[in-house]
Simulated scan of single mutants.
Amino acid sequence: METRIMRVVQQGEAFAVQSQKAESGQVMKCNIMLQELGGKYENRYVAAMLGNMAGCVYGPGELVAVTLRFTAREYNGAMYQDILVTDIAKLGIRN
């Protein structure tokens, strides 16, 4: 994993999902769309933020330092890729 500086495009609302790892059986989750720096055609990623991170709100255009975990899995003959935010911090700069 590596930490990158990215721009927030948009963030969805937090919602509860089932979790076998959580003590309560549920964990909060929200999705965030991030874009690499360099212009409007740079790569974009939709990543999940879990737990306490899901309660943090980032506005469009905010710059963040973010660490992403990419995983891939096979389920019932289909392949899926997941992107998880493992760490995120506002840089206090808005573009």
Rank of each mutant, 00 (worst) to 15 (best):
V66S: 00
K29L: 13
Q35A: 14
I5W: 04
G38Y: 02
P60S: 15
K21G: 01
E42D: 03
E62A: 09
R73P: 00
G39Q: 05
A16Y: 08
G51M: 08
R73I: 07
N76S: 11
V64R: 03
Q11D: 06
V27Q: 14
V85H: 03
F15S: 11
L91C: 08
I88R: 06
V9H: 01
S24N: 11
E62K: 07
Y80C: 04
A72F: 11
E42L: 03
A47V: 02
K40G: 09
E36F: 08
L91A: 02
Q81G: 15
S24Y: 02
V85G: 02
N43Y: 05
Q10G: 08
E74V: 14
Q81C: 15
I32V: 12
R73L: 11
Y80D: 04
Q11R: 04
V85M: 05
E42A: 13
Y75H: 09
A16C: 05
R94S: 10
Q35N: 01
T67D: 05
A48L: 00
G38V: 03
L50N: 13
G25F: 06
Y45M: 06
M1I: 13
Q20D: 12
S19W: 07
M49I: 04
S24C: 03
M79D: 11
A89S: 13
R69D: 15
K21A: 14
R4N: 09
N76E: 14
A65E: 10
V9Q: 01
G77Y: 02
Q81Y: 10
V46Q: 10
V17T: 12
E23P: 00
Q11E: 11
C30G: 01
Y58G: 04
Q26G: 00
G92Y: 05
T3V: 10
Q10K: 15
V66R: 00
G51Y: 08
Y80M: 01
